[in-house]
């Protein structure tokens, strides 16, 4: 019996693979699937709704109205002399993007078990499609932010965009990577231990209060000098602060903090991908 040389095989299935075998090439081949999944999510979102894609706008608009009422008017939390709705919107769209990526990714195995259990494709496609779908949504909401900024600018509010605004793509990358990375870690763990899924449900909304969505960092440092490091070293804080600083001219911007945030994000993302790749091979048996 003649043995075919090893390199002639297209697919080799073995129990364990290298920790860093991320099958990037495989994933690239399925890029059309990625786009189709994004399209599916987008289309399925507003099928059989009357308002359709307008829901993408309504959600943040209502959120900032409530925030404005509660945190600004009732609680009197200052907004760094930025018009309150604009201040909240900048934080909210960033935070929403992060939390959507995180929560959706964290249940990716559970939600798609039926599909993933039947057919093979690089599993990384699923979380990537989540991040991209949410990016579409984010883009719509960001347009709203730009419109609102322009509106306040014409009204004569002191809004001073500066060169830090060019960091915008980096900020998006960071927030997406962080949501994706954390989500993948959680998704991997929850295939066996469901408990963490419950932590995510109530934990993520609470986590919002440890970032500067509804208050400026400067205010937190002033009021709680001893504990403000929790907020400062939350990797999402520098991202939101940089966005506000770049587009609105107010906020705490430092290369150090942003670099720190990028470092943490890279570590979490790598960790997420590695754990995810390890679990995806057998999750069908345990999910």
């Amino acid at each position: 019996m003649s043995r075919v040389p090893e390199e002639d095989w297209d697919i080799t299935i073995t129990p364990k693979s290298s920790l860093f075998d991320l099958r990037i090439k495989d994933t690239w081949h399925y890029r059309d699937l990625l786009l189709l999944l994004v399209r599916r999510d987008f289309v399925a979102f507003y099928k059989q709704t009357i308002l359709g894609p307008i829901w993408f706008f309504l959600q943040p608009v209502i959120t900032i109205l409530i925030y404005n009422l509660v945190f600004n008017n009732l609680a009197n939390i200052p907004t760094d002399s930025i018009p309150a709705p604009l201040f909240y919107l900048a934080g909210t769209i960033m935070w929403n993007y992060f939390s959507d990526c995180l929560t959706k990714t964290s249940t990716v195995f559970k939600d798609n078990a039926a599909m993933l259990g039947k057919v093979y494709f690089p599993r990384l496609i699923m979380p990537l499609s989540i991040v991209l779908s949410n990016l579409v949504r984010f883009a719509v909401q960001f347009t709203l932010f730009l419109i609102l900024t322009f509106f306040y600018w014409t009204k004569g509010f002191s809004i001073a965009p500066n060169s830090a605004a060019f960091l915008f793509p980096v900020l998006i990358l960071l927030i997406a990577a962080l949501g994706l990375g954390l989500g993948m870690v959680i998704s991997a763990v929850t295939t066996k231990y469901r408990d963490l899924a419950f932590v995510v449900t109530f934990g993520v909304p609470l986590l919002m209060y440890t970032t500067t969505v509804i208050y400026p960092l400067s205010e937190a440092v002033k009021k709680y000098p001893a504990y403000s490091w929790i907020i400062k070293y939350n990797p999402i804080t520098p991202v939101i602060e940089t966005l506000r600083y770049g587009f609105l001219g107010k906020g705490t911007f430092s290369w150090g903090l942003l670099g720190y945030s990028a470092g943490i994000t890279t570590i979490i993302l790598l960790l997420g991908i590695i754990i995810f790749n390890k679990v995806e091979r057998t999750f069908v048996d345990t999910v």
Partner: peptide, 14 residues
């Protein structure tokens, strides 16, 4: 079909 991994052994596919 690579939906799950084997415990031991290997499969080679062309």
């Amino acid at each position: 079909s690579r939906v799950t991994s084997p415990t031991t052994g290997s499969v080679k596919i062309k």
